[in-house]
């Protein structure tokens, strides 16, 4: 299903500027327009009874943010170092934070390098992604936020 969807991705759905970050071994990106800000680790209030990848709630200057562990989601061992970062995203009036290992720069990507083929990607990931940018030195996986949140 997701394959057909990706084939039909329109050009405007592919961002030209991407916030890149690393989770585990791989590099990922989401459109800069989706990102509200990037913040350092915050203390977290865990929530009982929820799915495991929901880490808990953090207080971002008086706003409550639901923190999501991308490592847990992608089924990598959850072992964030002290220098992990929160990528803050606003969706439907709720704030979410994607917890990532490392933040890369904002990367300007050109559409030519975008590939919708997902064969190269781990099965656990496929349902969360839109496609892959082939950069000079690495692959940058474009995440589909709607599938994650």
């Amino acid at each position: 299903m997701s394959e057909i969807e990706t084939r039909n991705l329109k050009k405007k759905d592919i961002p030209t500027q991407v916030t890149g970050f690393r989770v585990g071994e791989n590099y990922y990106g989401i459109s800069v327009l989706d990102v509200q800000e990037v913040v350092k680790p915050h203390s977290i209030t865990p929530i009982p009874l929820v799915e495991e990848y929901i880490r808990g709630l953090i207080n971002l200057r008086g706003q409550i943010v639901t923190s999501l562990s991308l490592r847990k989601l992608f089924q990598i061992e959850e072992d964030y170092g002290d220098n992990h970062m929160n990528v803050i995203i606003k969706k439907d009036d709720s704030l979410f934070s994607l917890v990532v290992d490392e933040i890369l720069d904002v990367i300007s990507v050109e559409n030519e390098k975008f590939e919708q083929s997902q064969d190269i990607i781990d099965k656990n990931l496929q349902k969360y992604i839109k496609g892959v940018f082939v950069l000079k030195d690495k692959l940058l996986i474009l995440l589909d936020l709607n599938k994650i949140i």
């Binding site: 929530i47 009874l49 929820v50 799915e51 929901i54 709630l57 409550i64 639901t66 999501l68 439907d92 709720s94 704030l95 979410f96 949140i149």
Partner: peptide
């Protein structure tokens, strides 16, 4: 609470 947690 955000949509992810609301149903509890």
């Amino acid at each position: 609470l955000s949509s992810k947690v609301k149903e509890i």
